[in-house]
Structures are given as C-alpha cells and as structure tokens.
C-alpha cells in the first residue's frame, strides 16, 4: 500500500478540546458530590486473621494463561484496589474472589475457608457475606429500584414487608437515592444505577463488597462521586471493599492498599504512597499516566488504512 493511500488524523490534545467545550452543569438528579477527603477512616488492624487470603492463584481459560501465581491478603475493613491495564485479568480475579469462576490452581480463603473447594450450595452460603457491584450495574430490568435492592430478602420469612421496605429506604438513603424506589432501571442515569447496585450489594450487610470498575462509563465528576460514596459506605458499614479499576486517580484517592496486575501477575502491592513512589516502569507509567511515546492505531476502511495518532 502506497503512502498516498494512507490518511493521517492527528487527535487534538485534551486541553485544547477542553478549552473549546462549554462547562457542563452539575447533575440535577439528586446525585450530589461526596468529597473523598471528607470521610475520615480508622487505621486498619492487620495483626489479626485476614478476611481474604489468595494463595498462588493460576487461571487458564481455553489454553490462555490469564492469571499466574497471584497471592495477596486483605484484612477486615480495608479498601483494597486492584489496578491494571485492560485485559490484565482484574475482572477475572474479582470473579474468582466471589466464586463465579473457579481457579485452575491455588486457594482462596474467605475467613479461613477455602471457597475453591465449595460446591454451589456452599458458595451460596459464603456469598451471603459478600456483595458485588458489576461494571454495568447489572440491575434486573424488570424490577423497580426498590425491588432490585430488596431482592436478597424476597423470600425471607423472618422479616415483615414493613421491615423490608424500611431497610430498602435506609439503603437508598445511604446511597442518596431516596425517592427512586418505584423507578425502573431504564429510567435511571448511569451514576444512579451504580448507586442502586451498591445499595443492592449491601442488603445482606456483607463483610466484603466487590466493585468491578465502579467508575466505568461515568464522567469525571460522577466517577469521583461514586468512589467517594464507596469510601463512605465502606467506612459507615465497616465492610471491606475490593475495587477493580483502571481509574488510577480514584483508586489512589480512596484505597488503603493497592495491587498492580500486569503481565498476568502481581507487579506491586502497597499503599497509594508506595505506588506513587515506585520506580517499577509499568507502575510508574500507570500511576503517572505516561504512555510509551506516541502510539498509533491502524484502522482499516474500504478505501485504505487510516493511521490514528494520539
């Protein structure tokens, strides 16, 4: 292919694009900003038994090694962040922690019990102590916000409908979604759906809540708002949070400790300060948002190849 057939599109730097864009008004749907720094947390006691202990996990899917020899521990009350590039196995790791998938090798101890050896009934027992928020919220389309939140209690005989409604109202209030009980997921914004999914995950008062890309698909303000909410909820309820994200600034802002996944394994585990100070090339580049020089993507079109340079 000759050079004349190749068009080159130069993407404008972000600051130029920002300068042209008019400032967006803050959301007017009740999604108020929760500053991350406003929530004060107690120091984590790591002298006792860890809540979650991951030991030598390997995960191979259809012949491809996704995770290799990953080990770490999480203590009660921690907010633990897992960061890494797209496809680094973050979500795979999160799914292993709640038993949605089983690892090819290794052990996952939740309060000392190896959940990799449990059958589905055993996992269901353990899952009552866990909650999970999915990347795209995964609210049930056919149910209202209140019904989604109350789902885990739908068959409980030991609570009255009034107690259930009270608990739902309390949780929706905690995530600042009071008044949306009767709204369907399709009528909620992305940020509101995330909040309802957080309320749903907290219904059974879990000791461990897993968040898969909680800021995915949200604007920076809403993204910061959701991570602030996660910190607030974790602090208020005393639950442990494991948060998977490639939004480094938000992770650095709220996590007690973090883990960097790269090249199928753990590159570094440490506090946000450890991450900032690390001179490991991939951690340094990731934390400071540095690319490896100019990156070019090739895009095939019917008339030739376009090089998109960013």
């Amino acid at each position: 292919m000759s050079a004349s057939e190749r068009d080159v599109i130069k993407i404008a730097p972000e600051d130029e694009a920002d300068a042209r864009a008019a400032p967006e008004p803050l959301p007017a749907d009740g999604e108020h900003f929760i500053p991350r720094a406003s929530v004060q947390r107690q120091p984590i006691d790591r002298s006792g038994e860890p809540l979650l202990s991951i030991e030598d996990i390997h995960q191979v899917i259809e012949g491809a090694v996704i995770i290799h020899d990953v080990s770490f521990k999480i203590w009660p009350g921690e907010i633990f962040g897992i960061m890494g590039m797209s496809g680094s196995g973050k979500t795979t790791l999160l799914r292993l922690l709640i038993g949605l998938d089983k690892p090819t090798e290794g052990r996952i101890l939740f309060k000392g019990e190896d959940i990799t050896q449990l059958d589905e009934d055993g996992l269901n027992r353990v899952r009552k102590s866990m909650g999970m928020c999915f990347q795209y919220s995964a609210l049930f389309d056919s149910m209202t916000a209140a019904e989604n939140v109350a789902f885990a209690w739908r068959n409980r005989k030991d609570v009255t409908p009034e107690q259930r409604s009270e608990r739902v109202a309390q949780l929706l209030s905690m995530v600042e979604m009071s008044g949306t009980e009767d709204r369907m997921p399709a009528d909620l914004s992305g940020g509101m759906r995330k909040r309802v999914s957080i309320a749903r995950a907290l219904m059974e008062e879990p000791e461990l809540v897993l968040y898969d890309e909680p800021s995915s698909g949200l604007d920076p303000v809403m993204s910061c708002n959701i991570t602030g909410l996660i910190k607030k909820v974790s602090t208020d309820t005393g639950s442990t949070a494991v948060m998977v994200s490639h939004d480094v600034s938000n992770l650095l802002g709220i996590c007690d400790r973090m883990l960097m996944l790269h090249d199928r394994g753990v590159q570094l585990i440490g506090t946000p300060d450890d991450m900032r100070a690390s001179d490991l090339p991939i951690v340094h580049r990731f934390v400071h948002g540095l690319g490896a020089g100019e990156m070019t993507e090739h895009c095939s079109t019917p008339t030739g190849v376009i090089d998109v340079v960013g």
Binding site: I98, R127, F134, A138, F151, A152, A201, E204
Partner: peptide, 18 residues
Amino acid sequence: GTMKVTEQIDALRTMATD
C-alpha cells in the same frame, strides 16, 4: 440471553440465588 450478556445472571449468583 440478555440477562447473561448484561451480567444479570452473574448478579443472581452473587446474591446466592441459583
């Protein structure tokens, strides 16, 4: 199928529901 694609089936499992 839509529930599977949008992770609603996984959400059921995380809430201890088969």
